[in-house]
Nucleic acid binder design. Structure first.
Lengths: 206, 206
DNA sequence: ACTTATTTGTGAAGTTTATCACTAGGTATC
DNA sequence: GATACCTAGTGATAAACTTCACAAATAAGT
């Protein structure tokens, strides 16, 4: 299990496998196969087997995979067999929507602190969440040992926020701002950009 | 410009190029180069040149690219030199946040119709948007000739919604539900799944 | 005019990723 | 228990994608 050489693209598929296993579990399956999974995910069975092979052997020939067991194993590999504390930076429309979204907590990602620079918002509570001054970010994030953050600020402010987060000890950032973030090596950044997706799709509209 | 054989992955980078060109323009640049672009985007200059080569020749040796011109050309390639009418299905927390987000319209994607199945919401206006009954989807979408849709319903309902949308003439779907959508060939689907990104990143957290 | 420094576009080479195809092991049925 | 049928794991092969490296073109300075 030399995880250091697992391709990003493989790691990126693990959450999809996990999600699909949960769906199978909810539908009453106790066993499944790479073929079944592949069919539901829209990829080949060989790819699933190859991906899983990076981490060990989880199936049984002739039978396939035990849903619950594979679920637990993938959760452990992804480090989602524990809860994570998440910092959210930016409490505009997007930040508010994210903080209100219960899906994160349901999957073990708890938005425990929220930062904004607007004096009108700071110190107030919105839906159970207290907004802290952006100036206090370093102190709070580092003292709480937070490793995960979500950036939901305007593009021009994102790089600055990212640097402050990293300095405070954050190791992974989910970035909703439409800009590339330059951070220290070892810090992970993932991007969410709906506009880019829409533009990509409109390419194919005749 | 045999667009039929342009790899998806190349098309997926075009919005990033476009975005970066806008940022350069805002900063006062009139000319740029593949090297400059690459540095800002975090990819190699060769890749940018190779990508653009799929669509024609846009630069001048020794000089580089004229920002405005390349911008217009990429916009035309992506079909974003025109406005698009978008249907939004699902007006829960996520759908409401999306409908309130002005970024879509600012980039030419106008959420003109919103659907929900909740009788309490139907017919009411929220922030300038009227909610229609999900039952009217086929009629309204097809009569307005809408080709683009955003799905923001719970996972269990997404496949059904997708099928109704496609039947009504939709050709591209941005799916926020955490499920794979199976649609007719030729219909594009893009996925947005923040949880998957967080899980992917937590893999790297020691 | 000549030299130096850029930069694009692109064939060739290299790397990464996905598929194929097979072996070994397990199940089910008659 | 013999036969037919599945399925995981995996080396080999193929496809996809990225980088390299260079010729041709342009600009700028001396």
């Amino acid at each position: 299990m030399s995880r250091s050489r697992v391709p990003d693209i493989v790691v990126g598929r693990l959450p999809i496998y996990l999600r699909t296993l949960h769906q199978l579990e909810d539908t009453g399956y106790t066993f499944t196969s790479s073929q079944e999974l592949g069919k539901r995910i829209g990829i080949s069975s060989a790819q699933i087997r190859k991906d899983l092979a990076h981490f060990g052997e989880f199936g049984k020939q002739g039978t396939g995979y035990e849903v619950k067991y594979l679920q637990e194993q993938i959760a452990k590999i992804l480090n989602v067999d524990q809860d994570w504390s998440v910092a959210l930076v930016g409490f505009g429309d997007l930040g508010q929507a994210l903080s209100r979204y219960s899906g994160f907590a349901r999957k073990g990602f708890h938005i425990d602190v929220v930062f904004d620079q607007d004096p009108q918002k700071i110190g107030k509570k919105y839906h159970e969440v207290t907004i802290y001054d952006f100036e206090e970010l370093a102190k709070i994030v580092s003292s709480q040992g937070i490793k995960l953050a979500i950036i939901a600020v305007p593009g021009f402010a994102a790089q600055d926020v990212a640097e402050k987060l990293v300095e405070a000890g954050v190791r992974a950032i989910l970035n909703y701002a439409p800009v590339k973030l330059f951070v220290d090596e070892g810090v992970r950044v993932e991007y969410i950009d709906p506009i880019a997706h829409l533009q990509q799709m409109s390419f194919y509209l005749t």
